[in-house]
Amino acid sequence: MTGDRPLVEVRDVSLSFRGVRALSHVSFHVDKGELFSIIGPNGAGKTSMLNCISGRYTPSDGAIYFAGREITRLKPNARAALGIGRTFQNLALFNHMTVLDNILVGRHHLIRSNFLTGALYWFGGAEREELKHRRAVEEIIDFLEISHIRKAIAGTLPYGLRKRVELARALALKPDLILLDEPMAGMNLEEKEDMARYVIDINEEWGTTVVMIEHDMGVVVDISHRVMVLDFGRKIAEGEPDAVMAHPNVKKAYLGEDAAADEAPAEADGRSAVAPAMATAVSGSRVAAQ
């Protein structure tokens, strides 16, 4: 903001799947230290956008920069080493590993030992390194309050805890940027509150830049610094949460043409009226989709 380049710069990115246009000409940037949210109706292209940043998809057009470096065509594992961590909308843990091992996998790019030094464990430093990273991982485990399940097999855990383990695994990467795809989906109120607190702490105390996709508008408005709205693969609004919620395009996208036309002129304070309406609209459509 003070002349520095933003941490993430997405320039004119488009992405198609055999005719389906998932993203068209999307540009935005995320500054260092920001908590940036991406919202939009189902199928708007939010996950596709994260996938382009994490390297799962390569945009058909446009460019992506991270910390001043072009990463558009870099492989996902190379991006992890640059400091990009992420969680997934549909859980993607290593189901047969313990929670501890799942999180330790996140340390992969920070550990030097390999299969040779590993095989010789006690000679050659592998043990020392394992213990050092174990200590770092235990800090994350304490922070996310999952110490009671550290030896549990990940695939046996309930949904809410698995989401938390995924977050722990992404944090273990020591990321400068963490991408969260619907971290609170499917959670009850209490779990959501916990998760929101963790996200804020990660952002404020750990200084990690966060890009989050979330359908719960209440949470988005409460914790985001800036919000971008996608609809049918196009960016339709971007800015501070309150302003974005009040934007006529956004209401149209969520509530349909008529509702927006009826409400827009009458509503002075966009946030209070529209946000809950959108939350229900969205959760309604999600239930229908499942």
Partner: peptide
């Protein structure tokens, strides 16, 4: 050797590739 290898970085990476190769890749593998 095998038991040691499998409890350190590269062993975990192998199992990660087995369990979920897409997220293994995103974890830097």
């Amino acid at each position: 050797f095998a038991a040691n290898m499998l409890r350190t970085r590269d062993g975990r990476a192998l199992v990660a590739v087995r369990d979920h190769y897409l997220s293994a890749e995103v974890m830097g593998i």
